[in-house]
């Protein structure tokens, strides 16, 4: 699936994560900022990657600003952003 246009989802509220997704030419690139970067940065990136994989997105530039979101929120916000970005097969 291909990201057609920039899109965003989520908020800057605590327990949430703000996701911006844009088209990219070569693979997945993630830029993550988190209030729990040291403890959970790696895990958040993993969840973002897993969600993109599940949605068959191979190329995307993702900017994520995390405010302590649990996995279910990270994955929901990524999925929303991808759907809003108007992916095509």
């Amino acid at each position: 699936m291909k990201i057609l246009k920039p899109a965003k989802a989520g908020t800057y509220e605590s327990n949430d994560i703000y996701i911006m997704i844009q088209p990219n030419d070569n693979g997945i690139k993630i830029e993550l900022e988190s209030i729990v970067m040291k403890q959970f940065g790696k895990r958040i990136e993993e969840v973002i990657k897993e969600t993109l994989e599940k949605l068959e997105v191979k190329d995307a530039y993702v900017v994520a600003k995390d405010r302590g979101a649990l996995d279910y929120t990270v994955s929901a916000r990524v999925e929303t952003a991808v759907k809003r970005a108007g992916v095509e097969k």
Binding site: G10, Y72, T73, R77, E79, T80, K83
Partner: peptide, 10 residues
């Protein structure tokens, strides 16, 4: 759209 996906995951 966002809430529907979040509630589903929750």
């Amino acid at each position: 759209d966002s809430a529907r996906i979040l509630v589903r995951n929750a």
